[in-house]
């Protein structure tokens, strides 16, 4: 599956937040959206998910414009995990993950054994089977993020759309979530995610779309896009990109801001 956005303008009503955005992501790839606060990352996500109509251009899945697709049809291809998702009531983790089957079950249906099996597989894929009987509101932020990704997997999509999956996580949880996200691409899923950490583009060897205020977006491989100059243009701060050989002898990169 390939998700493409072509010459799109995104925004609310008549207010354009982003213009001339074009890029594509295939299954098995990770695409990171980078950019400063307020640049329109979430707006772009909502356009991709058909929660907002594009003000110009189009969004295509496998060459088909999704403008006339129903939410139900789109949900068979993409699954979304938002930044803020603390339910007001203490759901059990396995019940949260089962909600990923809402699309298949419909308004008036009830989950069947097949749906429970898919839920169990999603829990296993994210390595959180031990959490299944825990109360969702009691577990840590990183665990919640993995639960929500499992919920998205239970939807059986081909592309996951993750809005800042590591926001407000501690370092350990951030690494755990990113490694699970990276592992998903080896299982055939495509991932589009926003992040405020350029390092994560290197960790995941991602395709990068760098969004900037008052300048066209830059798309390409992490090594080509996440450079000292582009980060300065995007964020207005000095950041060095340092290369080194990791424990396996491969070239790795990290960002080191100059204070």
């Amino acid at each position: 599956m390939k998700l493409e956005i072509r010459n799109a303008a995104c925004g609310y009503g008549k207010v354009k937040v982003l213009e001339n955005i074009s890029f594509g992501v295939s299954t098995g790839e990770i695409c990171c959206l980078l950019g400063p606060n307020g640049v329109g990352k979430t707006t772009l996500f909502k356009t991709l998910l058909k929660l907002l109509p594009p003000l110009a251009g189009e969004v295509r899945i496998d060459g088909q414009n999704i403008a006339r697709w129903t939410a139900r049809k789109l949900a068979r291809y993409t699954a979304y995990v938002s930044q803020f998702h603390v339910p007001p009531f203490p759901y059990i983790v396995e019940d949260v993950v089962l909600l990923g089957r809402l699309n298949s079950v419909g308004y008036f249906g009830q989950p069947k054994q097949h749906d429970y099996d898919i839920r169990d597989k999603a829990l296993a894929d994210m390595g959180i089977e031990h959490l299944r009987r825990r109360v969702y509101t009691d577990i840590s932020g990183g665990e919640r993020q993995l639960v929500m990704i499992a919920r998205a997997l239970a939807q059986e999509p081909q592309m996951l759309v993750l809005d800042e999956p590591t926001a407000s996580l501690d370092y350990g949880n951030m690494v755990r979530v990113i490694s699970q996200v990276k592992a998903l691409t080896t299982k055939g899923y495509g991932v589009i995610m926003t992040t405020h950490s350029p390092d994560q583009t290197f960790m995941t060897d991602a395709k990068v779309v760098l969004l900037m205020k008052n300048a066209p977006a830059i798309c390409g491989g992490a090594a080509d896009v996440v450079t000292k100059k582009n980060l300065k243009d995007a964020y207005g701060v000095d950041v060095n990109v340092v290369e080194f050989a990791d424990a396996n002898g491969r070239i790795a990169r990290v960002c080191a801001p100059t204070l």
């Binding site: 909502k46 998910l49 929660l51 129903t70 939410a71 139900r72 789109l74 949900a75 068979r76 993409t78 699954a79 979304y80 995990v81 938002s82 803020f84 998702h85 339910p87 007001p88 009531f89 759901y91 019940d95 909600l99 990923g100 809402l102 699309n103 079950v105 419909g106 308004y107 008036f108 249906g109 009830q110 989950p111 939807q155 759309v161």
Partner: peptide, 17 residues
Amino acid sequence: FSFNAVCFDSDESNSMG
């Protein structure tokens, strides 16, 4: 069962179809 959707973020629930 579908009634559970109202307890969650509406964008997320909408993207579930």
